[in-house]
Design a protein around this nucleic acid. Structure first.
Lengths: 195, 195, 195, 195
DNA sequence: CATGAATGAGACTTCATTCAT
DNA sequence: GATGAATGAAGTCTCATTCAT
């Protein structure tokens, strides 16, 4: 707040700071309702500075997306290297790992969840859907009945929606997270046992 | 509907037509990315005409919301008149009815699902969340363990997400819908039996 | 200039006034260096008002172009209805008429002459070239030698360039105009007599 | 060109390379529509590097102008050393030399022709007009009638416009060039003989 | 010789909204 | 019931330019 100092180690990390602030605001207000002016003001930079680091507004989002989405890619890749169809143990581990990923980048996934309409015609949106299907791919058994496939999807979505509900529902967050994961694991377990 | 009325049925139903077109566009592109100009053009009216029927853009959305959301209110009310905690039979019926509601106003619920960020600070958004909690209220048993409560939420979200997935997943739509309902019912059944 | 009045018969003629002011400024400063802000200020309107009447900046130019270019189209059409190859009398008359056209919309043609680079990739620019070729078409004899064809082009360009030179060269404007026309007519006459 | 020098010829000629690329782009797109970013990218340098070599964008243009315009200055100077009024032979030679000059720096003169509006308020633009009048000065006989003076101007402009037409008109380029020169010479010849 | 980072000004454009008719 | 005309605010983006390193 003082004048003179404050913009200390602000050297070379501007790009990162833009991403951070942008995500924060995108998550808080939505993508469309967040203007570049706002982002710039939060950073105490000019709008033009943003354009030095990113070609367009969408590019900011895309870059965030790429960074925060990488763990999912790695999870999918790992999944594909496991024997098919996946054992129950594998499935459960996929969910556990995914839960971990969601928690570590919660604001981002909340954003994705709440801005589907916006993302729909952005390249990043397409990629995200692909990743969801990718996850489903490694969870499901293609020869299982439709209900079991739905269960796998349900497990995924339950965890996503959990993100959104966690905030608005009473109870201890960590306990809720565990309950959600348990229900999700239960779903794939049932999908496995063939019920 | 009558015979021989020609296009005079277009008299006085402008308000309805605005709602229809607006919903169509909101669902297709999102709320923010749909401008009043666009809506007016689709209707071959001027923007000013919209303002004769609705005070603001948000009012259009709100009015749609109120119309399409009424069945949920009725469902909730019905639920509240049943003995508490609800029997399994009741719970299942709530889901069946809800599924029916979702299907009959699919574009609207798809819209709600994909525009959460936008809805968040609109009054309608708040109301929607309330309704979701209302449904949860009549599904859940407050004395059941957390996992069971999550299962009830999961049932609800699975059906919502189904709306979104139905389009992009292979398979017969009707069959998918049934599978989704089945999984949801299964979830509340487990919640009921106490694990 | 007094306050209060001044915007009298400004009813419904805004579109025309935009075109007038725009042409004036485009001619004085060039297309790119004339901003919509400037045009709006000259008219004491907001920028947004311009957009009520024209879809884009380019559309303003295009509309001016279409209005002021029509006489050329008519001349070309008239030319095409004459017997081919054209008699000397006809050729001379084409030039005389063209001279008339240039004088009556001098600022516009001066603008076209001085903003070729800008016009090149605008649709209007293409159309203009077409018209020039159209005029050449009705002036030239396709079987005459190359030099005679060049003479016809030269006649056209001499008149155009005249527009530009008239201002900066000493002498009575009307006299200069006549001299230019005479030289141009001379050129097509030579082209006709076969060198 | 030498043996074994590799790309070290790129040392110290950056200034020249900037001019080359800039002219190329100015000619292709116009001055205003060519940004320094674009120039820098074509050269695989940063914008800031341009500022090491030139003080402003306009300075780049000016420097090009000065280089490519020198032959005209020399021609004018040569013309002024000839007896006045100029003999027909002299006049013809002026045109022949000018034609040569135009051809050797065709893109530049094309640029000048197509960017008159832009050049108007640049110093370079003024200089160019002066040079054109300078050429006219050594071509014309001040005591001849107005039509003959126009003819001299026409000869000049015909050659300029030729530059522009050459591209878009059918026929062998070299043949067209000769025809244009012939017509121009014809014009000054007539101007000389007194109509 | 040249780059990386940033700025200030300003461009075109779109939007929701208003109001006299 | 609706239109024509306009506004004020704001948005995304581009540009020429600067300066410490």
């Amino acid at each position: 707040m003082g004048t003179g100092t404050g913009n200390q180690q602000r050297r070379g990390d501007t790009r990162q700071r833009i991403q951070d602030v942008a995500l924060e605001l995108f998550a808080a207000q939505g993508y469309e309702k967040t203007s570049l002016r706002e982002i710039a003001e939060h950073l105490e930079v000019t709008k033009a500075a943003l354009y030095y680091h990113f070609k367009t507004k969408e590019a900011i989002l895309t870059s965030i997306f790429e960074d925060l989405t990488r763990p999912i890619d790695e999870l999918i890749e790992w999944g594909h290297q496991q024997p098919q169809p996946p054992s129950l143990e594998i499935r459960q581990q996929v969910l556990r790992r995914y839960s971990e990923i969601l928690v570590h980048a919660a604001p981002f996934f909340r954003f994705m969840q709440e801005n589907q309409a916006t993302m729909r015609d952005l390249k990043a949106g397409e990629s995200f859907k692909e990743r969801m299907f990718g996850l489903h791919e490694i969870l499901k058994d293609p020869d299982a009945p439709m209900t079991d496939q739905v269960r796998c999807f349900s497990a995924l979505f339950t965890m996503h929606a959990g993100m959104f509900v966690l905030k608005d529902l009473e109870g201890d967050p960590e306990e809720k997270r565990k309950a959600i994961l348990e229900v999700a694991i239960d779903l794939v377990t049932q999908a496995h046992s063939g019920d």
